[in-house]
Design a protein around this nucleic acid. Structure first.
Length: 242
DNA sequence: GCGCATGTTAACCA
DNA sequence: CTGGTTAACATGCG
């Protein structure tokens, strides 16, 4: 569930509820479910890994973290963290982080940072990369203020595709590689989206969880890298350390 | 049956 | 105040 493309899938699945009024709402999160009764959903959108259910004056922010899930017109045995019913169906969110947003979304979200958003702005990202010059590129790819929606799978796949070692210092990476990085972060995210929809995502992994480099046929290194200490799978032969 | 993982935040500590 | 580490959350899979 958790990476950006999966959030896009959830957003698309929930579109039938856009424009509908809430009939029933219950939550175990620390927000007042009554705020939304009889209110109309004016939009359902995403920013990175955030799913945003927008009402005229408030927004419910759902973050699936590692284990979150949702069901539409279906229920599991455990109590949902959030349930919302409409005249045309209902949705249940499980084990998710639910927050209430009171500010206008444009005040708090930089839409140009979201790799899945049509407002994604490569130039803005390149500027942020210059400011991140002394950080490891593996950490930088996971930075939601720069690459909102990118998660650990996308990180590993993008770095393998552009042949860059995850522990490379961002400022040392040549401009042509930075250009490739910016392109591939978006391209791979949309391929991820398509493969996820077709339920063939894992089949297309070249690096993530893999034991051997498909190019060099030598063993991948598995290492918890960077300040994020997230799993990196990489080939020390074909992924250059800058 | 154990250990771990597509994530984030808060608490804690030096 | 800062930076770093750890815990917490809670589920499913190999």
């Amino acid at each position: 569930m958790p990476e950006g493309p999966s959030l896009v899938i959830s957003k698309e699945a929930l579109q039938p509820f856009k424009g509908k009024k809430v009939i029933r709402c219950t939550t175990t999160a620390n927000i007042d479910a009554h705020l939304f009764i009889h209110k109309k959903v004016v939009d359902i959108t995403t920013w990175g890994k955030h799913l945003l259910i927008c009402f005229p004056h408030q927004t419910i922010r759902i973050h699936f973290l590692l284990f979150g899930s949702y069901l539409i017109n279906d229920t599991r045995a455990i109590t949902p963290r959030l349930h919302i019913s409409f005249s045309n169906g209902f949705v249940n969110f499980y084990t998710s982080s639910i927050q209430l947003i009171e500010q206008p979304l444009d005040d708090i979200y930089d839409w140009s940072a979201d790799v899945m958003n049509e407002q994604w702005n490569e130039k803005a990202a390149r500027k942020k990369l210059r400011e991140a010059a002394n950080r490891e590129i593996g950490d930088v790819l996971l930075d939601q203020q720069i690459f909102a929606g990118v998660g650990n799978i996308i990180k590993n796949e993008v770095l393998f595709r552009i042949r860059v070692h995850p522990e490379s210092i961002t400022g040392n990476i040549p401009p042509a590689k930075i250009k490739a990085l910016l392109k591939e972060a978006v391209t791979y995210s949309f391929e991820f989206l398509q493969w996820k929809k077709e339920d063939v995502l894992k089949k297309h992994w070249l690096a993530h969880t893999k034991k051997t480099c498909p190019r060099c046929h030598i063993p991948f290194i598995k290492k918890y890298t960077g300040k994020a200490k997230r799993r990196s799978f990489f080939c020390t032969n074909c992924q250059l350390l800058y």
